[in-house]
């Protein structure tokens, strides 16, 4: 069902686990649909210094989480927000049609993490 690339990333994800000092976290998905994705970001001067994930889900959900984290690392927040599910799909070399929603979930997780960071910094300013 999956291509070699997806399986390889799933087997050895680079960005799995907790992120120390994370200042933004986005949680998307739910147990009904079978996938829950959490993306943690460490933002410094509007740049994503590091990103990690924790995901309950299928092979493509885990692989999507990993490439999403990889893609936003080092990016300015505005650029990170431009990462789409298509980019995630491309980085994975494609996903089976019934699994495309996993890449959408990854895009949403990035957005949620950045939104969370912005909210918490705004609070601090206040």
């Amino acid at each position: 069902m999956y291509n070699e690339k997806v399986l390889k990333i799933f087997e050895n994800p680079k960005n799995a686990g907790l992120l120390k000092g994370a200042n933004g976290v986005g949680k998307v998905g739910n147990m009904q649909c079978g996938d829950v994705m959490k993306v943690y970001v460490l933002v410094e001067h509007d740049k994503i210094k590091d990103a990690k994930f924790k995901t309950f889900g299928c092979v493509s959900a885990i692989a999507s989480s990993d490439v999403a984290c990889e893609m936003i690392k080092g990016k300015h927040l505005d650029d990170a927000l431009k990462v789409t599910n298509k980019d995630v799909m491309e980085a994975l070399g494609g996903l089976p049609p019934q699994k495309v929603h996993c890449s959408v979930l990854a895009q949403e997780a990035i957005e949620a993490a950045i939104t969370d960071y912005k909210k918490s910094t705004e609070k601090k300013k206040k």
């Binding site: 999956y2 889900g57 299928c58």
Partner: peptide, 14 residues
């Protein structure tokens, strides 16, 4: 608990 079936199945397949 906390583990999704397809992922587990795939690791076992490896």
């Amino acid at each position: 608990r906390g583990v999704e079936g397809e992922s587990l199945l795939t690791l076992l397949d490896f």
